[in-house]
Write a protein that binds this DNA or RNA. Structure first.
Length: 749
DNA sequence: ATACCTGCTTTTTTT
DNA sequence: AAGCAGGTAT
């Protein structure tokens, strides 16, 4: 077969290029996946051995897809190409090599962010730091940031130039020590430790450098410092590094992705050849023109204009809803129309939104309309309590040093081991340099343990040992089955009469079938690989988008996908762009790129919706339409608006066309009834700042403050400034309350 | 040891 | 609105 068939000249050039660094600037829908697969096929066809090729993708799903496509072109050789995400690559690498580093063992477990947050909380407690002042979230972000820029605990300590960072540094050190004691790595460690290992062990590094003669990295604009360094190290010998990306689609800056990695690629590799793919094969002229018009508003950007030979297509439809439920209903009825009148398949349709919280109302609308859908993300399968519990059992069986997991299950199902008992054992473990599991399996010397606790401990330890012995002889599926049943977990769910237990049991069945599927896969189906996979797959990897269902997901999850019909919901200032980005120009530009990504997912038809008012944190707020919506020229738009009846309520079955130039200005103020009279929700500024309580008010000690619930009180202290003003207010008969000005429903009396 | 209640905080996006 | 930590009652 001809590898070059159906490629345009730029694509051919990209595929033909094999030696030396290559930068492919690939616009949305320009066929970059095709180019990458053809490149791999071409290399294999030229006789390059599959294990000499390393290809990094952004999701596991993309990796699998690419492998299948190469397979179809060139045959089973494709199986031996190293093709995975950065994180999966590092996990695989470290399973083989990590013991070169002091203190780690090959059977490490991978902690997700909630596991790592648990560890951070114990660190904070041990260091006597106030969780209110040093929130686990902010500490976690700071540590993650450090790791993404390859700052280990020592380097971080050196650079800590303020009080907060010094505290973070203390936590970071302890956190890292604990991970090591648990024989665990977090997501960021996978990358950082890999780089450290390669840098410290020349022999190992040389081995892999020699091996990977050809390296390709997709979505290069979303690589962070650690990933950048890793790529650079691996490519240092052969220099055959091909990176593909689109700076306009960089949307992971908040995760440490550094857009400079792609912008400065030419500086890093002066001999680089650059190829631009600017012809779009995906979208209509209208959709592309809208996308171009939006992205042009970014200042920090190299100019680029995608073009297409596709038809002009339909106008983009916008809809101004009354509230989020009306928005959901509009989307549902429009989807129904697409299905019945235009004969679209549900599978052709995607609903995109900025925040996961938006999905709920949309789901309700679809349920009411009886439209089948699948949701990507949100409460992830592996984040559900019952799945995490069983998963914790498996981790303890695999790596008994994993105390975080052990703590999770030691009394689940209930076996009469309470806080007091566990605290005593933990203390004993710490004093004697043992792991908690060491103590659990040998509790005799622990002082102060009551007799009635010994029996359940013995039974529990025996159970874990038994399962450990099984792990080499049983399939993962059978092991899980035994864990669920013999631990008493299932029995507890069945005996309790809680309504949610039914779905929990369903989910556990689902876990069993996940294990069955895993055993059919390419990898050796042992517990080690199962645990790695569970830790590193994302929802998008598992989503079955082939079925005849509408897909719900965030804009971020949608990257790399395409759909004939796309809805983007919540086109409002404060939601998209999100309020937390409005103060910061570069974050705002990242929002705009997310919008660009969203628009360019659409092939045929795009709908953009916003609402006059919507519930956020239990309050109704009113946001003006998103600036991104305003940035699309009128000529590409068809605007609809819900008709309001005399009382200002929507009659949502009726939609009227909105005339040009008469774009509805949402009311800037909303009134809300309450037992204490009328509260005015904050006023939207003309500049488009997010709604929030008025932080312009200056509070002083002695001021009288009126609170929605507590009535009138006197300010007794004012701390902090700007966004962070914290007030203490004495309310007669109700004591002194601490309030954050930005959240509290207070006004000056 | 555990179930229940109350009051408070709030993640935007994810490997 | 809703999840969660912390406290209290069983």
């Amino acid at each position: 077969m001809d590898i070059f068939e159906g490629l345009n000249p730029a694509q051919v050039a990209a595929v033909e290029h094999t030696t030396g660094p290559l930068l492919i600037m690939a616009g949305a829908g320009s066929g970059k996946t095709k180019v990458l697969t053809c490149k791999i096929a071409n290399l294999l066809a030229q006789g390059v051995a599959p294990y000499n090729i390393l290809a990094i993708t952004f999701t596991n799903k993309a990796a699998t897809e690419m492998r299948e496509r190469v397979d179809r072109m060139i045959g089973p050789k494709a199986k031996d190409v190293w093709l995975s995400t950065f994180h999966a690559f590092c996990a695989r690498f470290l399973r083989r090599e990590i013991e070169a580093l002091e203190g780690y063992k090959h059977n490490f477990v991978i902690y997700d962010s909630s596991d790592s947050q648990t560890v951070i909380k114990t660190c904070l407690r041990e260091l006597n730091l106030d969780e209110k002042q040093y929130t686990p979230n902010s500490i976690q972000a700071a540590i993650s940031n450090a790791k993404n820029t390859l700052q280990g605990p020592r380097a971080f300590e050196q650079s800590a130039d303020n009080f907060f960072k010094e505290k973070v540094s203390d936590v970071y050190k302890l956190y890292q020590k604990k991970l090591r004691a648990n024989n665990a790595l977090d997501f960021d460690d996978l990358l950082m430790i890999t780089v450290v290992l390669l840098e410290e062990h020349q022999d190992i590094c040389a081995k892999y450098q020699a091996r990977f003669k050809y390296i390709m990295v997709d979505e290069y604009q979303d690589t962070n410092g650690a990933q950048y360094q890793l790529t650079k190290l691996l490519a240092a010998q052969h220099h055959n590094l091909c990176v593909v990306g689109d700076a306009d689609q960089s949307i992971y800056g908040w995760r440490g992705a550094d857009i400079r990695n792609i912008m400065d690629f030419e500086k890093d590799y002066p001999e680089v050849q650059t190829i631009k793919l600017e012809q779009n094969y995906r979208s209509t002229k209208t959709i592309l023109a809208a996308a171009n018009a939006v992205i042009e508003n970014n200042i920090d950007r190299k100019p680029k204009e995608l073009w297409t030979e596709n038809a002009g297509g339909e106008k983009i439809t916008s809809y101004l809803a009354n509230d989020e439920r009306d928005e959901a209903q509009f989307i549902a009825t429009t989807v129904m129309k697409q299905k019945t009148i235009f004969n679209s398949s549900f599978g052709d349709i995607a609903i995109l939104y900025r925040t996961n919280a938006q999905s709920r109302v949309l789901e309700e609308g679809f349920m009411r309309a009886g439209i089948p859908y699948t949701m990507v993300g949100g409460l992830k399968f592996y984040d559900r309590k019952e799945i995490k519990d069983i998963h914790a059992y498996l981790r303890v069986i695999f790596n008994p040093a994993d105390t975080v997991s052990l703590m999770r299950i030691i009394n689940v199902p209930k076996r009469g081991l309470g806080d007091a008992t566990i605290a005593k054992m933990n203390e004993f473990a710490a004093m004697n340099d043992m792991t908690l599991f060491d103590v659990v399996s040998n509790p005799a010397q622990v002082p102060g343990l009551t007799a009635r606790v010994k029996k359940p401990l013995e039974i529990f330890a025996e159970f874990v040992f038994k399962m450990m012995a099984y792990q080499d002889n049983l399939s993962v599926h059978d092991l899980i089955d035994r864990v669920m049943n013999e631990s008493g977990y299932i029995a507890e769910l069945e005996s309790e009469k809680k309504p949610e237990n039914e779905t929990r049991l369903e989910n556990l069945k689902e876990l069993l079938s996940v294990a069955k599927d895993f055993e059919k896969g390419d990898e050796i189906p042992n517990l080690e690989n199962f645990l790695s996979q569970v830790a590193l797959v994302s929802d998008i990897d598992n989503a079955n988008l082939e079925e005849d269902r509408v897909t719900f997901m965030t804009l971020h999850s949608a990257k790399g996908l395409e759909f004939p019909i796309v809805f983007i919901a919540g086109m409002e200032e404060g939601l998209f762009p999100h309020s937390r980005t409005l103060m910061n120009e570069s974050e705002l530009e990242e929002e705009r790129r997310a919008c660009y990504v969203g628009i360019t997912r659409a092939e045929r038809k795009l709908y953009l919706t916003n609402a006059r008012g919507r519930m956020i944190y239990g309050h109704t707020v009113s946001y003006p339409q998103s600036r991104f919506l305003s940035e699309i020229p009128e000529e590409y738009m068809e605007r609809l608006v819900v008709r309001q009846n005399a009382y200002g309520f929507a009659n949502s079955s009726v939609v009227q066309q909105r005339g040009y130039g008469s774009a509805f200005r949402p009311s800037v103020q909303m009134q809300q009834a309450s037992g204490h009279g009328t509260i005015t929700t904050p006023v939207m500024q003309q500049t488009g700042t997010a709604i929030r309580p008025d932080t312009n008010v200056n509070w002083h000690v002695g001021d009288k403050a009126k609170h929605g619930k507590w009535g009138t009180g006197t300010v007794v202290s004012v701390r902090g400034s700007g966004e962070e003003v914290e007030l203490k207010i004495a309310f007669p008969g109700q004591g002194i309350k601490g309030l954050m000005q930005k959240y509290a429903p207070i006004s000056k009396e």
